[in-house]
Each structure stands twice: as structure tokens, then as C-alpha cells.
Design a protein around this nucleic acid. Structure first.
Length: 507
RNA sequence: GAGGGCGUAGCUCAGUCGGUAGAGCAACGGACUUUUAAUCCGUGGGUCGUGGGUUCGAGUCCCACCGCCCUCACCA
């Protein structure tokens, strides 16, 4: 192109300042003015009333008829046809249009008209360069289907597959809807450390990194919980944080090593306070998504084969009921539960039997419970978001035991479509009970957990010190933003709602 | 971590029984002022994921490795 005296890369100028989204340009089409122009263009003194627009985007299709060139240009909002006729543009514009290839970014200005086949077209009076595309673009019809290339070269995926851009833009809108909802409810957004010298607040393997200046190891946080609670001690009444957590574990359809979570804490609230908060926040996000599809009425969104209703109140099922339903005997029958668990791994042999027999009662029950929960749709109605309530206290180390029944934790987990979306707690604020629970956790509740995993189950003395200062009673919740986005946008893998999912480096 | 599947042109894909590497689109040169996946004429394009083995001969069969996908395991 430079050999032809053309500059392949554009600059900001008077025309680029006028650029509007393709969608807006198309809606500016004026049929009356177009017909008037078609009928009277040759009359002396005729004033062309057709709106003039400037759009910019990538060339998706190209039909060069010699002295008339048809281009299909795509931007984030859609596609539009552009016609560049030799007699209606200057030589420089026409040469540029001639030298254009599929994939180039082009700026085109012109009046809106319809072709005789009825397609809205920008009849160009000038075109300007945007950017040259130096790689051969993916096939214009088949698109880009290779999932590996889609994730590694997301820029290509976003350009070629409009659905990708739509889903990821929707993710941004879901986050901003929830953020606005929280602010409207009077919660203050805060930022707490991502680099922590103790990785607490959850049971997960952390990433370790090294700080040179202080010559210390630091952990990437696995949860912000313990810092947010310190803020309640300090006097913040209602706080939330939407940010990344990092867990050094496997990848699958529901797990990316870095993921986004919203945690919220409400002083002088409890589990019920934050359950209502989550339900309303999710409903607000679902309503936004639903409305963006131009739909009205009861909000229901598809996820796979299911249709999930967000207008009806979310359901509640107790842990004990679900256990009974799944196994046909009550969870109080630990002896029978133990036999069922042993029978689950017939190949485990004597070793497995011994491990199970040494397990705490509550862990036996919970192992069985979680086995069934993975196929959660078998027990819960997948079309209704459901809170599982009345968890055993022993598996919820940071939760306050129920005042009436200390064996039950004040904890409720929200499940949608078989996925765990958000746990809710009445938070534990008694430092003595908290310390006892830390110690219990440190004993190594799982005999078969390896040593490496136990190294990060350390006692957080400063957190206990904070509780001694006095934390008001509080409700707390944590919501997986990635999973919520999956459910609201009907994506079955977490990688399709993350802009740049983790990939093994290319060789 | 275990099992299974996949990897061929820029993209989407064929490739039979082991016998000269294929198509469409894209690219390159040319024609064409209302096209719609424009059309027409012409041209170029391959480390068949990588490395080894079997064989007269391997894209094809065997082994190892790399990457991706699926299922399971792990995972608040």
C-alpha cells in the first residue's frame, strides 16, 4: 500500500471524531429522504436530506465490481454494507478501497440509502484507513471454531465470533448491575490485600510468591473474608468487594485458577439478611439480562436444557432433608452412612475401609452429601434457585453455630442448575470459639491430606486479636461472579465467560 | 493424576486396504458501477503437532513426547 502512496494506518481526525456505532448508523436511515432522493436527485436545486454517517470497523466481506466496491463492515454493534463508487469519492479514497483486504479496519463516511434489494447501505463519499490486517483472516463463513485458538488468540475470537463479544460484554454489565445494586443498598466497596502473608478465609491451596524487598514469602489470596471482617471490627457497617481470588488447584468447567468473587458483610445482620441480599442482587442481574434480550414478564433464562426462573422466590431445602431424600435414611444413622461410604469405593480395599472408619462422623455424612450434590439436579429442582440450609456446624469453621442447636451452622448455600453459586453465613464473632475452631481445623481433619496442604492451615493470630476487639454480629456472603455469569448467559464452561482463561504456555 | 478422543494449507474439512498431498473459502495477478457467501479467467500455497520405529514405501501401522478437548479424580 505504501508503494501506492497510501498510508495503511489511520490517525484521529475530523472524520474519526464523527464515528458512530453501526447499530446507531443503521437506525438513522430515513426512508422518506431516501425515496425523495431517488425520485428527485436530478432536479436542479435538490437538497439531499438523507442522513450522513461515519462508521468504522473490520471488512468482513468484499465484492469488488471494478468501479463499484461493496464492503460489509462489522463493529461491536453489528454489520453494515458500504458502497464505494469511483464517481462519488476522490481518487485517494477509491484507491484505498481498492487496496483493502478482508480484515482491515476502515473508516467510511456517506449517506444512508437502501439498495434495490432493500439492504441499508452507507453510500460512501470518503473512506479513511483504520488499520491494516496483516494476517490472513479466518474463513468468513465457518468462523473460528478451534477452541484452543479462540482462547489463546481471544482478539480473533472477539472479532470473528460476535457471540463471544456479546457474552463477555454481558459479563461486564452483570458486574456493574450488581455493583450498582450493592451501592444502592448502602454497601461500600473496598479493596483488601491480594498479597497476604497468611492465606485464610477458605480451605484451598494458595499460590506462593516472593517479595524481594522484605525477603518474605507471600500468598495470593484465596479469599478476602478475614480482611473484610476486620473492617467490621473497625466500624464499617456494610462492605463488599468484587475482585479476584486465586486458588492453586485444578482447572475444569467450573474452576479457573483466578476467579472473581463478590463478598459482602453486613454488621448487625445475619444469614437471612444476606440471603435476601443475594436473591435480590441475582434477580436484578437476571432482569437486566432478560431485558437486554427485549423480553418482558416473568424472568426466566435458559441454561442448557433447563429454564431457570428468577422471578419466583428462591427455594429452601435443609441439608438433613436432602440427605434423607438421597439415601433413604436419616443422617443421624452414622453407622449406615459409614457402610455406604465404604461401599462407594469397592476397589479401595482395606485401606479405604480403615480411612472411613477413622473419619469423624460429620465428615462421613458430608462426603456422602457432596457426592450427591455434584449431580445436584437429581435432588433440587434445577429451574428454581435453591438455598441449602442447616449445614452441620463441624464442616463450617468460620460460621457461628445456631443459638438453639449448636450442631447446626447458620449457613445457607445457594445452588443454581447444580452449581454452587454463593454461601451465606451468620458470622462467628466469638474469639474463643473461633480459636477453638481454628485449632480443630489445624489438627488435620482429613487423614489423607498431604503435608503440603497442611502448611497453609495456619493460625491467624491477628484475626483473633481483631475479634477480641469485638466484631458486631454480622451476616456475610460470597458469590462466584464467573459462575453466575455462566448461568445468566447460558455458557457451560467458565472459560467462555473469562476474557483470557489460563492456558498452558505455547511451546 | 487415570482413561478416552483429536492434531492435514491462513480458516473449515476430505484423505479408501500402507502406494505421487486434496476441496471450498482466503491469498496473489487480471476483468467487471447495484453486489448479497458477487461472478469470470489465471497463479502460487504443506516439516500431515514433534521425534523415533516397522516397511521397498507411512498422513495412514507401532512407541515416546507436546498441545487441546471430554469423562473421572482432586477442589468450600
Amino acid at each position: 500500500m505504501r508503494a501506492l502512496g497510501l498510508e495503511p494506518y489511520g490517525v484521529r481526525d475530523a472524520s474519526t471524531d464523527e464515528i458512530v456505532a453501526v447499530e446507531r448508523a443503521r437506525s438513522a436511515y430515513d426512508e422518506a429522504a431516501d425515496k425523495d432522493h431517488a425520485a428527485r436527485a436530478k432536479e436542479p436545486g435538490f437538497v439531499d436530506g438523507r442522513p450522513r454517517v461515519t462508521i468504522a470497523g473490520r471488512i468482513m466481506l468484499l465484492r469488488d465490481n471494478g468501479k463499484l466496491i461493496w464492503l460489509s463492515i462489522r463493529d461491536h454493534s453489528g454489520d453494515v454494507q458500504v458502497a464505494v463508487s469511483q464517481k462519488d469519492v476522490n481518487e485517494r479514497s477509491f484507491s484505498l478501497a481498492k487496496a483493502t483486504d478482508l480484515g482491515d479496519v476502515l473508516v467510511a463516511s456517506g449517506r444512508l440509502m437502501k439498495t434495490r434489494t432493500g439492504e441499508i447501505t452507507v453510500w460512501a463519499d470518503a473512506v479513511h484507513p483504520g488499520a491494516k490486517c496483516l494476517v490472513v483472516p479466518p474463513a468468513k463463513h465457518e468462523g473460528l471454531e478451534d477452541v484452543e485458538v479462540r482462547y489463546r488468540q481471544r482478539y480473533l475470537d472477539l472479532w470473528v465470533n460476535p457471540e463471544t463479544l456479546h457474552v463477555l460484554a454481558m459479563r461486564s454489565k452483570i458486574v456493574s448491575t450488581i455493583r450498582k445494586f450493592m451501592e444502592d443498598r448502602g454497601y461500600l466497596e473496598v479493596e483488601t490485600p491480594m498479597l497476604q502473608s497468611l492465606a485464610g478465609g477458605a480451605a484451598a491451596r494458595p499460590f506462593v510468591t516472593k517479595m524481594n524487598a522484605l525477603d518474605i514469602n507471600l500468598f495470593m489470596r484465596i479469599a478476602p473474608e478475614l480482611y473484610l471482617k476486620r473492617l467490621l471490627v473497625g466500624g464499617f457497617p456494610k462492605v463488599f468487594e468484587i475482585n479476584r481470588n486465586f486458588r492453586n488447584e485444578g482447572l475444569d468447567k467450573q474452576h479457573n485458577p483466578e476467579f472473581t468473587m463478590m463478598e459482602a458483610y453486613h454488621a448487625f445482620g445475619d444469614m437471612e439478611t444476606v440471603m435476601e441480599l443475594t436473591e435480590s442482587a441475582i434477580r436484578a442481574a437476571a432482569e437486566m439480562v432478560f431485558a437486554s434480550q427485549g423480553k418482558t414478564g416473568d424472568v426466566s433464562l435458559p441454561f442448557g436444557d433447563w429454564s431457570i426462573n428468577y422471578t419466583k422466590p428462591f427455594a429452601r431445602r435443609s441439608y438433613a432433608d436432602l440427605f434423607q431424600q438421597a439415601y433413604g435414611f436419616p443422617m443421624s444413622n452414622v453407622a449406615q452412612a459409614r457402610e455406604v461410604l465404604i461401599a462407594e469405593k469397592p476397589h479401595g480395599g482395606a485401606e479405604w475401609r480403615k480411612a472411613v472408619e477413622g473419619m469423624d462422623d460429620v465428615l462421613v455424612i458430608n462426603e456422602l452429601f457432596e457426592d450427591k450434590q455434584k449431580g445436584g439436579e437429581a435432588q433440587l429442582d434445577p429451574s428454581v434457585p435453591t438455598f441449602i440450609t442447616h449445614y452441620p456446624a463441624a464442616i463450617s469453621p468460620l460460621t457461628r453455630p445456631n443459638r438453639e442447636n449448636p450442631k447446626i451452622a447458620d449457613r445457607a448455600d445457594l445452588f443454581i442448575a447444580g452449581m454452587e453459586i454463593a454461601p451465606h453465613y451468620t458470622e462467628l464473632n466469638d474469639p474463643d470459639v473461633q480459636e477453638a475452631k481454628f485449632r480443630e481445623q489445624l489438627k488435620g481433619i482429613d487423614a489423607d491430606k498431604n503435608a503440603e496442604e497442611n502448611t497453609f492451615r495456619t493460625m491467624d493470630h491477628d484475626f483473633l486479636r481483631a475479634l477480641k476487639v469485638g466484631m458486631p454480629p454480622a451476616g456475610g456472603m460470597g458469590m462466584g461472579i464467573d459462575r453466575l455469569t455462566m448461568i445468566l448467559t447460558n455458557q457451560r464452561t467458565i472459560r467462555d465467560v473469562v476474557l483470557f482463561p489460563l492456558m498452558r504456555p505455547e511451546a
